[in-house]
Amino acid sequence: MIINGVTIDATFAEAFPMKATRAIITAQNEKWAMISAQAMTGFATSVIACGCEAGIERVLSPEETPDGRPGVSILIFAMGGKGLAKQLETRAGQCVLTSPTSALFAGIDSDKPIPLGKNLRYFGDGFQISKLINGKRYWRIPVMDGEFLTEATTGQVDAVGGGNFLVLAQSQPQALAACEVAIEQMRKIPNVIMPFPGGVVRSGSKVGSKYKTLGASTNDAFCPTLKGITRTDLSPDIESVMEIVIDGLSKTDIDKAMRVGMQAVCELGAEAGIQRLSAGNYGGKLGPFHFHLQEILG
């Protein structure tokens, strides 16, 4: 398949089941809600070493938030429920509780509640106050700037992690420019995050390594500087490859995000130096969710 001069590889991205949750952070203004959200979703690019993958889903207007203040919704993904609960609580405690004027609310309902502020309340040293409002429990924790208001729990849901596509371009600036355009469009899709810095990852990995202690190592088949010395997947005219990884609450959400992202890249086309779109997979052995690029764009 070729769209606007861009070759779409007959391959698929391989994704795996994850557990996810959504939280809503509000603050006095959007600036401080965003600062808190950025802190909470920081160092959360990959479960390989961060314990979770997290990102900002979107900015919320005051009308959309529980307390009528500007807010930001964030999504956190982990390989299991326990890990998710631990990451959520640690990050809420260190990044939202500490952030001036912030409040923290559940962003998703499910029959599996996980602690949000339930245990952070002990920071209140006995001065914390519980309020049950409309069947939801909130904790008011006294802090130096006033009170930190947090909902006790949020919901844990089944999700999908690891959707991806690779942008293969004639130069590094062209690859990055295409990814930026894709990310801009993909951020409009609800229920997904692109957890890597700015949504783009330049160090895609393969499973395994020559070093026994490493479970993952550089994806040498897509490294342009190794074209001549490894079994490469790159043609001579490709100088740079970048990847966009997508985690979503469902396969459909990732489908949508991949479609708008790849369409945006294809619109730039070969004229902008984009040669191919490909995807990372592990022969179908890693995860049950397969995203066939040509089907998505078909």
Binding site: P66, D67, G68, R69, A103, K131, I133, Y138, R140, G146, E147, L149
Partner: peptide, 8 residues
């Protein structure tokens, strides 16, 4: 004080 739980 301005208390955040009151609007809720």
């Amino acid at each position: 004080h301005t208390l955040a739980f009151l609007p809720l």
